[in-house]
Design a protein around this nucleic acid. Structure first.
Lengths: 131, 131
DNA sequence: ATCGCAAATGCAATTCTTTGCATTATAATA
DNA sequence: TATTATAATGCAAAGAATTGCATTTGCGAT
């Protein structure tokens, strides 16, 4: 496996940002160091890093995938399908199930930024009113 | 809320297929009934149906979203990040956690086709061998 | 230093999905 | 029937992400 400076700057961008960031944001930050870098290079690097367990990719319903370092503490998300509100959940909540799955299927669980969808209290009310 | 024949044919296509199907497959089946229908109409209908809790949308890593009827029994997926193998999980496994989340946050959980990522036994070996 | 291989990259094209805007269809009301 | 409001649609363009292919780069072996 060869090191890549793109990988380095991507990881740096992810470590520096406390929140999940989009590929566009990552691309901008990489470009600050490598002005001529191509978007596809960044996408490929992101895919490679995810493949190797360095980062994780989630769809939080923002229209673009968001990325985070695996070094950041594992946490999960409860997202309102309507208004997009995001609640962060302790990953410990799922540890038991994940362990059971690993034991049962021999899988090594990779997910540590699970996304659960629901309707927040406010949007439930609107939902009942509107149909 | 107005009825739409597109909605009808989409639901029909989903009920007829035991497995998750892609938007392309759905589009083809709707077009069998409405030859001139536009892709964006189908995408919008899919979004609408998901919004109204009739169907669910999942990314199973196939390069395109897959769709399923909410009438199909709730089940979740354990997907190998490398080879794409899909294991179906009983949704009951998560019922307890979901109930706890609903109680704690007042959310109504919508997810019933959760996707968990991992590495299957075979791909773990390859992973250790290859780096 | 040179050679050769595999990984990484650039570029353009393609695929998948969403969005803006004008138009059409539907249902309720007058 | 005519009117109005809202939902659904078509079309084209934009956005997000992936892919094919040729080129370049980095590393090890010679």
């Amino acid at each position: 496996m060869r090191a890549s400076s793109v990988d380095h700057y991507i990881l740096q961008a992810l470590e520096e940002s406390s929140e999940h960031i989009t590929s566009a944001q990552i691309y901008e930050r990489v470009r600050a160091h490598l002005p001529a870098v191509n978007p596809s290079t960044v996408y490929r690097a992101l895919e490679r890093l995810a493949h190797n367990g360095k980062i994780s990719i989630s769809d939080l319903g923002r229209g673009a995938m968001v990325y985070q370092s695996m070094n950041a503490g594992a946490h999960d998300h409860l997202v309102c399908q309507r208004c997009g509100e995001i609640i962060h959940l302790e990953h410990d909540r799922f540890k038991e199930i994940f362990s059971a799955l690993e034991a049962q299927y021999g899988y090594r669980m990779v997910t540590n930024h699970l996304v659960l969808w629901g309707l927040c209290p406010a949007c439930q009310s609107e939902s009942e009113a509107g149909g």
